[in-house]
Amino acid sequence: MDLLIDSLKSAILLVVALDPEMLAIVTVSLKVSLMSTLLASLIGVPVGFAIAFNEFSGKRMLVTVLNTLLALPTVVIGLFVYAFISRRGILGIFDLLYTQHAIVFGQVILIIPVVTVFTVAAISRIDERYRKTAMTLGANRRQTAWIIFREARFGILAAVIAAFGRVISEVGISMMLGGNIKGFTRTMTTAMALEYDKGAFTLAVALGIVLLAISFGMNLLFHFFQGRTRI
């Protein structure tokens, strides 16, 4: 118990002092997480909107598959991507393994289903009367889609925030594809795992505090935008 208390005190001092090593790790985490969230949003939002806005055969099955992919283990994605970007993989010539690009690649695959499913849910919540009213007033299909998108914007933002919260705290992909290289691919979660293995808890606890603060902030934003969808 004394060890935990002492580590917590030292960790708080480390956070307050803005330790350079801690800041470097946090910067890498935020960089790869923001980039992967942006790329996944550029793919997932249009796909989710198209699924929700259109009626087609197999739609329910597609949504079921996407919901299933929400539970896809990060180590499975790590193994899958590793097989493609390793030296013997079909993308090996690009030398992506153990780089930030590799982490982003894996994280994008991880959260595309998150963005897509939440976007589908946000669009599906919009009252069908919006579509009918817009079409009655002479709006074409593109204009109607834009009206629906505007009404669902808070739900879509919540989808993006949820995706960011998923990747900022993942460890499997970052460890397997990034290699935990100091100052280059070491993220908060991989650094915490390393410090634990070394028996050095101060930096691990400090990073845990920062990660919890970020996650708490993301959840506040998520619930805020989720609340706005119900107004």
Rank of each mutant, 00 (worst) to 15 (best):
G172Q: 11
M1W: 12
M188R: 02
F56H: 04
L110V: 01
Y82H: 11
S36H: 00
E55I: 02
T64W: 14
P73I: 15
A134N: 03
Y130K: 05
L203K: 14
K59V: 04
G92S: 06
V171E: 00
A139G: 08
V76A: 15
S33M: 04
F80C: 04
D95P: 04
G172W: 08
I51N: 02
A24C: 11
I77M: 06
Q143W: 00
I148T: 04
A163I: 02
I93R: 13
S169W: 01
L79D: 03
I148P: 04
R166I: 00
T27H: 14
G138V: 08
V108Q: 02
L39S: 07
V104A: 03
I51T: 04
L8E: 09
T202K: 08
Q143P: 06
D6P: 02
R87M: 11
S86P: 07
T187Q: 06
V32A: 00
T68P: 02
F56E: 07
W146L: 15
A204T: 03
Q107V: 04
F224R: 08
F80G: 10
T229S: 13
M188D: 03
V47D: 02
Q107E: 01
V115H: 00
F56I: 03
V160C: 07
L203A: 05
E151R: 13
T27W: 14
I173L: 07
A122V: 11
A191K: 09
L97C: 10
L30M: 14
Q107C: 00
Y82N: 12
A71F: 06
I111Q: 01
L203V: 06
E21Y: 13
G183W: 02
T187W: 08
L91Y: 05
I148D: 04
W146H: 13
E128W: 09
R228L: 08
L42C: 14
G183L: 01
N180C: 05
I90P: 15
I231Y: 14
G92F: 05
V114P: 06
I77D: 08
L14F: 06
R142I: 15
S86M: 12
F53H: 12
A193T: 03
V160L: 06
S33D: 12
G183H: 06
Q107F: 01
F154N: 13
D19F: 14
I43K: 10
Q100K: 12
G183A: 05
R228T: 05
E128L: 08
M192K: 10
R125I: 10
D197K: 07
V160I: 15
E55T: 09
F49N: 01
L220T: 09
L8A: 15
F224Y: 15
D2T: 10
F80H: 10
N219Y: 04
F53M: 02
I90R: 05
F80D: 00
V65S: 04
S36C: 05
M1A: 13
L91C: 03
P73A: 08
L30K: 03
S29Y: 03
S36W: 01
I25Q: 03
T144F: 06
A139N: 07
G89L: 03
L69Y: 07
L211P: 09
F222W: 08
F216W: 13
G155P: 05
L70C: 01
L62N: 06
V117P: 00
D19L: 14
S57Q: 12
